[in-house]
Design a protein around this nucleic acid. Structure first.
Lengths: 98, 98
DNA sequence: TTACAATATACAAAAATTTATATATAATTA
DNA sequence: TAATTATATATAAATTTTTGTATATTGTAA
C-alpha cells in the first residue's frame, strides 16, 4: 500500500490546529459570529492578549481562518464552512464514547 | 456565552489523537482492513516497533481504536465508523484549500 | 522447561508546543 | 505631533510530545 507520508503530514497539521481547547473555543466563537475582532475574543475567553493572538496566528497559518483589517481592529473569520461540520461531528464522537 | 472549557479540553484530546502523521496512517490502514496485528502495521509503515506500539496506545486511550488479543498477536481495530468520515472530510478540506 | 516471537513498557534525549511578560507596530484621536 | 488603543511579535520558561534503545512480558512451540 502506498503510504504517501507527506499527505498525512499535511492532514496532521490541520488536525493540530484543532487540537487545543483555546483554539476550539475560538473556532466555536467564530462559527457563531460571522467575524470577531481580537478584543472581543479576549473578552469572551478571558485569556491574555498575546495568548489569543498566538492561537489566532496558528489557526490562520493552518488556513482555517482569515483576518480582515478595519482600522486598528482585526476581524477574524472562518474560511471553510465545513469546519463547523468537523466540530459537530467530533462532538458526536464524544457523545457516543464517553 | 458559556465557554464550558472542559468540553473543549475533551474535544482537543480527540483531535490530538488525529494530529500526528503516523497515527493518521495507522487509522488509514485500520479503516481499510477490519483489523490488523501490530506486526502488520509495522511492516506497512516501516517504523520501529516501540514507536508503533506507542502510537497505538495513544489511539487506544483516546477511544478511537481497540485491541483484541489472539495468542501473541494483538489485533487493533477502529471503534467508531464515523472516524473514516472525519478523515475523509478532512481530506476534502485539504483538497480545497491547498 | 527452554527458546522464541509478538508486543508492551520504561526511560531519556530531542523536538515541539503553550503560556505569559515585555516590547514593538500601526491606526486613530486629541 | 503626542497619546492612546488594538494588535502583533520576540522571547523564554514550563510542559508536552515524539522517537528510539533497552528491557520486560506473555503466549507458543520445541
Amino acid at each position: 500500500m502506498d503510504m504517501n507520508e507527506n499527505k498525512y503530514e499535511i492532514m496532521a497539521e490541520i488536525f493540530k490546529a484543532f487540537a487545543d481547547p483555546t483554539r476550539l473555543m475560538i473556532l466555536k466563537l467564530l462559527s457563531e459570529n460571522e467575524s470577531m475582532c481580537v478584543c472581543k475574543i479576549i473578552e469572551e475567553l478571558k485569556k491574555p492578549q498575546p495568548t489569543i493572538s498566538h492561537h489566532l496566528n496558528i489557526l490562520k497559518k493552518s488556513g482555517l481562518i482569515r483576518a480582515r483589517k478595519k482600522g486598528t481592529w482585526n476581524h477574524y473569520y472562518i474560511v471553510d464552512p465545513k469546519i463547523k461540520y468537523i466540530i459537530s461531528t467530533m462532538e458526536n464522537v464524544i457523545g457516543e464514547n464517553k
